[in-house]
Amino acid sequence: MLGYALRRLLLALPLLLGITFVSFVVIHLAPGEPAEVQTGDLSIQSDAQARQLLRETYDLDKPLHVQYARWLARLVRLDFGKSFSPDARPVLQKIGERLPVTLFLNIIEMLVIVGLAVPIGVLSATRQYSLFDKVTTVFVFVGFATPDFWLALLLMILFGVQLGWLPISGLRSLNWEYLSFWRQQWDFLGHLVLPILVATFGGLAGFSRYMRQSMLEVVRQDYIQSARAKGLAEPIVIGKHALRNALLPVVTILGLSLPGLIGGSIIVESIFAIPGMGQLMVQAVFERDYPVIMGNLVIVSTLTLVANLVADVTYSFVDPRIRVGARRGRR
């Protein structure tokens, strides 16, 4: 078990280095000559000035290998430089303020998705071709095809503008400080409803589909037949014998879908004006705040890598076959 975890960790190290390398390449996409940049359509400050800052921050006047070495050395010290925006605060500090918000939302989304998709998938698999199964199948196809930002707009029009039931931006009302403690919690929850709903919609469709598929495969296995044959009640056969095995592949897919979920934060956070990493990223792109962009990219992908690692190790914990298989040389 521990050996497997260590092996996975070792395999992850080159990936970590790869992340820094890809990010390093991205920096060099910037057009080289200050003179050729005239438009400046998106930036709040002059491009020439930004380019000067860029050159200083990333040592662009040095040879490539020196640049990369310095970039790595800074990353190891978690030094992402200072923001180009007028406040010029350290990038790490800016990200630190926003990371917890994004993590919090993504963890809740994950719990909601798993909490709903598992029962939906199991129900539609055990009642294949029933009305419930057909309805969820339609939901899955529509869910896959619905752009999340559009869903967000529709919900905002319906619940925010027309009905006026739910707040449509931020995480707190303007008068938050003057509310009592419980009112504050209630207010916070109200602000969470729409973003969570939007962020979980697409994922829910996918997961209930995988869950259904996985359950359908397991239910056909011999050991389910024997469980039934020895007279176990159907809920025990399904809930205990089948469900445990059907959940296994879903754990892997959960890990694989993490980048998507985190990437989705960009849209959700910028529509609902939630002060998280996604919103910071969009702002930084508009302001051409390169150090913040690069810091965001490195931190978000490193977090994804770590989360994948955790998912892998968890998977090997629940399914010992993986550990044994790994020793026989995977791929």
Binding site: L15, G18, P259, I266, V285, L297, S301
Partner: peptide, 12 residues
């Protein structure tokens, strides 16, 4: 596959 695609797209 480790990069959340939207972050990478925006950065580029």
């Amino acid at each position: 596959l480790v990069f959340p695609r939207f972050f990478l797209l925006l950065a580029v």
